[in-house]
């Protein structure tokens, strides 16, 4: 019996090892002075120095962060408007149509989004580069923000708005003093999701990036196509650390959001 009960734990441990092995493998060999992903020769920080001295790469990292922050801010604004639009549309049918259209970009494969945006940008004459990448990132982040904000709007009791109106609040007051504070956790969650979507995206960016402009994912792809490059290994360690802190931030915020939701329900 005792032997039998261990199997699930063993299976789970194997899964954990398999899931994390490639990531730690990359990080481990980023310190290999041999410059390969096999046969560890000696410990070195050289590749990290290379990364920090590579101005081209640093500019690309900067680009990626700027695109992510800008697209997250703008898509959060549009997404909040979108969630309110869906929430306060009176006809059920219009509401369902809006929701379905909202979800199209979430379910579409990246290749389709990338290819169709490429056609779109060429069609309306937007030059491929910073602008096209930014617009594309905003476009595919909006629906996820809507989906994060909408549940918070739906759980908000309409009596709050009625009460505010009875007490003489203007429409603007209701928006800024009642609705927005209430849905703030949803807005943060949406912002974080948009940020990670943007940082992670490869396929869409790859289609609309043109020649002169590059983000980190696209750069990693073109480096990896040429084979093993220790700079990618060093980068992966740095990215892993950043991702971990983002996940921790997101986890913290969603915990807080759940807490708020609990408070909202409590009588």
């Amino acid at each position: 019996m005792g032997k039998k009960r261990n199997w699930p734990a063993i299976y789970l441990s194997i899964m954990f090892v398999i899931l994390y092995a490639p990531i730690f493998y990359l990080m481990f060999y980023s310190f290999n002075s041999g410059g390969t992903m096999y046969g560890f020769e000696g410990f070195t920080f050289d590749y990290y120095l290379e990364v920090f001295q590579n101005t081209r790469l640093l500019i690309i990292v900067l680009n990626t962060v700027i695109i992510a922050l800008l697209s997250a801010v703008i898509s959060t604004i549009i997404g909040v408007f979108g969630a309110m639009a869906i929430m306060y549309v009176k006809k059920q049918q219009t509401k369902n149509t809006l929701l379905s259209l909202n979800n199209v970009l979430i379910v579409s494969p990246d290749v389709i989004i990338g290819a169709s945006f490429l056609i779109l940008f060429t069609f309306i004459g937007i030059k491929l580069g910073f602008a096209s990448v930014l617009i594309a990132h905003i476009a595919f982040s909006v629906p996820i923000v809507v989906l994060m904000v909408l549940p918070k709007l739906q759980e908000m009791s309409p009596t709050l708005i009625d009460a505010a109106r009875d007490l003489g609040a203007s429409r603007m007051d209701i928006l800024t003093k009642i609705i927005l504070p209430y849905i703030t956790p949803g807005i943060y969650a949406g912002f974080f999701m948009a940020l990670t979507y943007s940082l992670d995206d490869f396929a869409v960016t790859f289609f609309v990036t043109g020649n002169g402009f590059s983000t980190l994912s696209v750069e990693i792809y073109s480096l990896a196509r040429q084979g093993i490059s220790m700079e990618i290994n060093a980068l992966s360690t740095l990215i892993f650390l950043v991702t971990l802190s983002l996940v921790a931030g997101y986890y913290f915020i969603s915990k807080k959001a759940v807490g708020m939701a609990g408070m909202g329900v409590r009588k």
Partner: peptide
């Protein structure tokens, strides 16, 4: 918590994970 730990690797850039396999599955890889 365990679920979160399972999900964390999916937040790492896919390209990096794919790139790792270039080494793991390579001729001299593990």
């Amino acid at each position: 918590l365990w679920l979160l730990l399972i999900i964390v690797p999916s937040w790492i850039n896919i390209l990096l994970k794919v790139y790792a396999f270039l080494g793991i599955l390579g001729t001299y890889g593990p």
